[in-house]
Design a protein around this nucleic acid. Structure first.
Lengths: 104, 104
DNA sequence: TTGACAAGCAACCATTTGGTTGCCTATTAT
DNA sequence: ATAATAGGCAACCAAATGGTTGCTTGTCAA
């Protein structure tokens, strides 16, 4: 779980996930297109995404195809975000109450 | 949004959010209890959480009370995770298909 | 078969990050 | 008044991060 959070912390990596979400199964060079970064930098980001299991790759000849794995993102939603949804309104209420107390 | 992701990337910070979720409105020293970290380290983490708007503080005399702000976490769920939920089953299907193709 | 293309490896670099220590300020309680 | 308590500030440090350049390997097409 920590690896996933760490992987998602970088905007370049999130945009790579966006690209795969828009079109799945891209090669490294395709994913590099239009980015202000060397291919090697992208390789490193993809390696981090792969280590976090957010991306899975398959070799096809000399090409490497990258596929989005939606499971970890889904888990963050289910296991982590949901927890904070419980008690969300209560927390908002406390916040509001404190703000009003301050302004008296 | 980027600040929020960055803030959530660290396990210590996530555990501080957990603590506030368990009991809202704690002081700095209360939040330090039981942690293997100096008070100053915790201060820095809380500053990052506050900058990301995940925590809001109120001074009460010489104490500083920390309150969870559930809004940014909720937004991550709504704006970011939900996007990947759309097309999630399709992505899982493609992944499975590729895995099977490989094993032929 | 040989050149072009896709990707990998490794060393290096600057900056950011997560932490420390030491000292200072502000508020409260005795 | 003064000691104790809650927190703030700043300098410093090692390690991690995000990026680069240069070179190598593997695969396909002419």
């Amino acid at each position: 779980m920590n690896e996933v959070f760490k992987a998602l912390a970088d905007a370049s990596r999130r945009s790579l996930l966006d690209r795969l979400h828009a079109r799945n199964g891209q090669t490294l060079n395709e994913l590099c297109e239009g980015l202000e970064m060397t291919r090697q930098a992208v390789t490193k980001h993809l390696a981090i995404l792969e280590a976090a299991n957010l991306v899975t790759t398959f070799r096809h000849g000399r090409e490497k195809l990258h596929y989005l794995n939606p499971v970890p993102i889904h888990q963050i939603g289910e296991r982590w975000i949901r927890k904070f949804e419980r008690g969300r309104l209560a927390a908002l209420g406390e916040l509001k109450r404190q703000l009003e107390k301050r302004d008296e």
